[in-house]
Simulated scan of single mutants.
Amino acid sequence: MPTYTLHATPSTVHLGGFSSTLPPALRVQSGDVVQVETYSGFAHYGKAPDRFFTPEFIEICKTLPAERRVGPGPHLLTGPIYVEGAEPGDVLEVRLQAITPRLPIGFNAIRPGWGALPGEFDQPRLRFIDLDLEQGVAEFPPGSGIRVPIQPFFGILGVATDETSRNSVPPGAYGGNIDNRQLQAGSRVFLPVFLPGALFSVGDGHAAQGDGEIDVTAIETSMNGTLQLILRKDLHFQAPMAETPTDFITLGFAEDLDTAFELALKRMIDFLHKFVGIEREEAYVLCSIAVNFHITQVVNSPMKGVHGLLPKGILPQPALL
């Protein structure tokens, strides 16, 4: 199968959201592998240490065309990638083969009016955090001896819908700003397709994040990834789901956590019924005694996220997706 490299350039990235009108940055066949570059921190150009901005990133910041500024969000995404043969109703499987920070530095930003405690922490703060890529840790606060493991993942994995300008901040049925720290290398993400070609984009690299993403950012950094894109006409999901080496994951997004949890739970019951073969009431009971539900994030206004994790180790035989 072919392997492509998609460099991040002013003609292959887009800022702030998703759009049905963006021309593809790359066209691939189902099963092709893409080595992709992403950058994070577009809004902080001129405020960051020199080592945070490569010459290529500076060129993007200075020359990004107006037509590639498609929404009000802060995220710089690479894509879209057009998958030949993808049609609405299909599912795009994204295999995350490798995810690696591009730079030994990231940032965390508190934004007024955002975060889990906007009334208490209401002043803007921008911090740059060194990444020890050799040891795989970030010390924070500096000099504290607290060593946070580097566990890189992409916060945004999503497809376009029929909207010409969709904000990159809230996640939804299209994926987007999922911000799920479980989706590290070795995972698979399944996204419903809404438009011909799927128009998949990726970005928002995170070196480390806790469940909840409390202050509205993780350790945000530029990231390289190796992704395999597979068209699945045998699956028909109404919302994203995922699989890691240890768990199956269902996702729920809503404006309040109760509804987000209910959606994640119902989708887990549906998964257990369809792919594991147990009755819905038994699936409900199994969710109570064996499935772990976590808060994904509470800051991607207006949508909050909850995900359920079904441990693969409890199943007598693998569920096949």
Score class of each variant (00 low, 15 high):
Gly305Pro: 04
Ile289Trp: 10
His273Val: 03
Met223Ser: 13
Thr226Pro: 08
His294Glu: 09
Glu281Gly: 13
Thr296Met: 06
Ala198Glu: 01
Arg232Ile: 07
Met223Asn: 13
Ile278Tyr: 15
Val216Pro: 14
Phe237Asp: 15
Ser222Glu: 07
Val299Asn: 06
Gly205Lys: 00
Leu286Asp: 10
Lys274Met: 06
Phe261Val: 13
Phe237Tyr: 15
Gly252Asp: 05
Leu320Thr: 11
Leu265Trp: 09
Pro240Gly: 09
Lys304Gly: 02
His236Ser: 12
Thr217Arg: 10
Met223Thr: 14
Val298Arg: 08
Val276Asn: 09
Leu195Phe: 01
Asn224Thr: 11
Pro318Asp: 12
His294Thr: 07
Thr246Tyr: 13
Glu279Arg: 13
Ala198Pro: 02
Val285His: 15
Phe293Lys: 05
Ser288Val: 11
Leu263Ala: 06
Asn224Arg: 08
Asn224Gln: 11
Asp258Phe: 06
Phe275Asn: 05
Leu199Ala: 00
Val202Phe: 07
Leu320Ala: 12
Thr296Ser: 05
Leu199Gly: 03
Thr244Asn: 14
Ile230Glu: 09
Ile295Thr: 11
Gly305Gln: 02
Val276Gly: 07
Val285Ser: 15
Pro196Phe: 00
Thr226Asn: 02
Pro302Cys: 01
Leu310Trp: 01
Ile249Arg: 15
Ala254Asn: 01
Asn292Arg: 08
Lys312Gly: 10
Gly210Tyr: 07
Asp256Val: 11
Leu315Glu: 10
Thr217Trp: 08
Val291Ile: 05
Glu282Cys: 11
Arg267Cys: 01
Lys266Ile: 08
Gly203Asp: 04
Asp234Gln: 11
Gly203Pro: 02
Ala242Trp: 02
Ser288Glu: 14
Ser288Arg: 09
Gly210Glu: 09
Asn224Leu: 10
Ile269Leu: 04
Lys274Asp: 12
Phe200Asn: 00
Phe253Ala: 11
Ala260Tyr: 14
Gly308Cys: 06
